[in-house]
Computed example of a mutant assay.
Amino acid sequence: MHVRNVHKDGYPMAELCQDYPALKAYLISAKSGKQSINFSQPDAVKALNAALLVHYYGIDTWDIPQGYLCPPVPGRADYIHGIADLLATQNGGLIPRGNQVNGLDVGIGANAIYPIIGSASYGWRFIGSDIDDLSIKSAKTLASDNPNLAPLLMVRKQADKEQIFRGIIKPDEHFAFTMCNPPFHKSAEDAALGSKRKAKSLEKNRHKRNLKARHNSPLAPALNFSGMANELWCEGGELAFIQRMISQSVAYKEQVDWFTCLVSKSAHLKAIETSVNYYGARTFLKMDMGQGQKQSRFVAWTFQEK
């Protein structure tokens, strides 16, 4: 993980339980003897997330509606820290901090995870956009219920599902960066198959570690990979979404310093770079991230002279 990622050394379960007592109900003993949770149990994962956000990011209360994505906090933190490194390259090597740094989270979701981490870590101000009404309501509630977050997060509804920036970025606004975790799958069927594969893999690993799970329903693992349609899939999948983002970013090239987006499949990188070059961006970067054995990355492009 990133050197500034506070989660790089694992989860201090005793401290987390002290700050968020509800987590205690989900603790189990791993084969190593250390305390853990059953990561195939959705309620346990949500409790761990809430504990992490309370302990590290000053959040008083955090929750998401049933069926919405519950993001892994450490990986989301890596994306924020990667953007901080990107901004530092144009600021004499120093990470710009404070509420004068504005970021746009495209697809904030019900969890508002990126603004929570970014505002707590660097004091940045965020606009979060989404097409889903319940996600908008949930993100607004998270902002209003947490005094540290409220002045640094504004949530806007994207009324046109075909647009990414239009209707969200106002004419007089400037953003240091935009960020996005795009829908990965091409269809609902593809998303269901992907969730099933993840569930099987997670359950297999759980048995390998001989975890003593409190609940062992065969249906439990699949539930951990729930999510609304707009969170999981779009026509054409990840590549089509990112290419649409690139084409629409041209209209806002003077208002945004860096456009960024996560890329799940490395096979998409070449096509993404080709699109960025086609639309006349001056700089294209690929920023690698890693969580354990899993490698991930985000891409960044700018139309401005750097």
Results as ranks from 00 to 15, higher is better:
H55Y: 05
L152K: 05
S121T: 14
G237K: 11
N91G: 00
L52H: 01
L53Y: 04
E231H: 00
A120M: 04
E189S: 14
T283M: 12
F126D: 02
A47D: 06
S32N: 14
M245Y: 05
E305L: 14
M13H: 05
G33M: 14
G109K: 01
C234D: 10
M228N: 11
Q163Y: 00
G290V: 14
S121C: 08
R297Q: 14
F259K: 12
F165R: 05
D78H: 12
Y79V: 07
A220H: 06
L69Q: 08
F303V: 07
I59H: 01
V45Y: 07
W258E: 08
P65I: 02
M245I: 03
R206K: 07
R197A: 13
A139F: 03
S275F: 09
R166G: 11
K8P: 07
P147C: 06
R4V: 09
Q304R: 03
C261P: 04
Y56M: 04
G167V: 10
T274D: 15
K204T: 10
E305P: 09
L239T: 10
L86K: 07
I59G: 03
C70K: 02
I127F: 00
I168D: 05
L202I: 01
G93Q: 11
E238K: 13
Q18V: 10
I37V: 09
G280V: 12
Y79C: 12
Y278P: 04
D288M: 09
W62G: 04
Q90I: 11
Q90T: 13
M228Y: 06
R125T: 03
G107F: 01
W301N: 05
R297W: 05
G103R: 00
Q293N: 15
K161N: 13
D288K: 15
F241V: 09
I246E: 09
S144I: 08
A267M: 07
D60A: 05
S144D: 02
S266W: 12
A25V: 09
A240N: 14
T302R: 10
L53V: 10
Q248P: 13
H2L: 10
E305D: 14
T89F: 00
Q41A: 10
P183C: 05
A240D: 14
D130P: 08
W62S: 07
D133E: 11
K137P: 02
R244H: 14
Q295L: 15
Q163S: 11
A22Q: 13
H81V: 10
R214G: 11
I37W: 05
T89I: 03
I59E: 01
K198W: 12
P74S: 10
A188D: 10
W62C: 02
L23Y: 08
A220P: 06
T302M: 05
S296C: 15
L152N: 04
V250S: 14
G118L: 02
I117T: 01
A30T: 11
K200S: 07
K204L: 06
L94D: 03
R125V: 00
V263D: 01
L232F: 08
L53Q: 06
A77M: 04
